[in-house]
């Protein structure tokens, strides 16, 4: 009869030990892996909410290869229709169809919000793995979630501190708080909905909230998403940007 408690103890240990063995760095690696994809194509709706209740809607179509190449085009509203962004590594270009002009977003422009929203161009160009620039520290854990604090001493990062709440089961970030120097919270990113695509779960509705301006947020709702798409070789070139 004593064998039963022993088996229960062994079972408990076998479940708990691997979980405890997960270090903060390992969780971030898993997160990077979960969020990374070789290639994808999507259409999405971006809602930019300004204080006072004004909502503006932007429908867009994008093609992405890893975290290095991306090409995005606005489909709506008419004012923005045809405006395209090209990302190649850490560089970002924007093409304005009405003026038929392209400019590289750099310097002070990188800090600006896309369409005045809460996602900056700097956020768009970020491509390296979090562990390359941050040190990870596990600061909290429950049965279902784990909280990691990322801290960077690299002066080039947009946010020296990032607190990430990860769903243990799906390895999806439930909530990220990006903070500036002095740990001052700047913005919060919340996953509102996820969707299963084959064998992977991916966030399809995300909200970025400003923690500096009251009642200001930007939401991304992915309407369609296809992973593992093969794009022609010249997809992510300036020629295609200005076509």
């Amino acid at each position: 009869m004593k064998i039963i408690p022993i088996i229960l103890i062994l079972l408990t240990i076998s479940i708990i030990l691997p979980c405890q063995a997960q270090t903060a760095a390992e969780w971030i690696e898993k997160l990077d892996k979960q969020m990374f994809y070789q290639s994808a194509e999507y259409t999405a709706l971006m809602t930019v909410h300004s204080p006072g209740g004004t909502d503006r809607y932007f429908r867009m179509q994008g093609k992405v290869v890893g975290d290095q190449f991306a090409l995005m085009e606005y489909l709506d509203p008419p004012r923005q229709r045809g405006t395209r962004y090209l990302k190649r590594d850490d560089n970002l270009w924007i093409y304005f169809p009405r003026q038929d002009r392209t400019m590289q977003i750099q310097g002070h422009m990188l800090r600006k919000g896309v369409q005045g929203g809460d996602m900056s161009f700097e956020d768009m160009t970020e491509s390296s793995s979090l562990l390359e620039k941050y040190e990870a520290l596990l600061i909290g854990e429950t049965d279902t979630t784990v909280t990691i604090m990322l801290e960077s001493h690299d002066m080039t990062v947009s946010y020296p501190f990032r607190e990430i709440l990860i769903d243990k089961r799906t390895v999806i970030p439930i909530r990220i708080v990006n903070s500036g120097v002095g740990r001052m919270p700047i913005k919060e990113i919340i996953t509102l909905a996820t969707k299963r695509f084959g064998d992977r779960i991916y966030p399809v509705s995300t909200e970025i909230r400003s923690l500096l301006v009251k009642d200001k947020w930007t939401r991304f709702d992915i309407e369609e998403m296809k992973f593992g798409v093969n794009f022609p070789e010249d997809t992510f070139t300036k020629k295609m940007l200005e076509r």
């Binding site: 300004s50 304005f96 003026q99 038929d100 400019m103 600006k112 369409q115 005045g116």
Partner: peptide, 16 residues
């Protein structure tokens, strides 16, 4: 003269 400035919504406002 091509210029890009910040529009009244905080987005990019191009002008040629």
């Amino acid at each position: 003269l091509f210029m890009v400035t910040t529009d009244s919504y905080g987005g990019l406002g191009p002008g040629l």
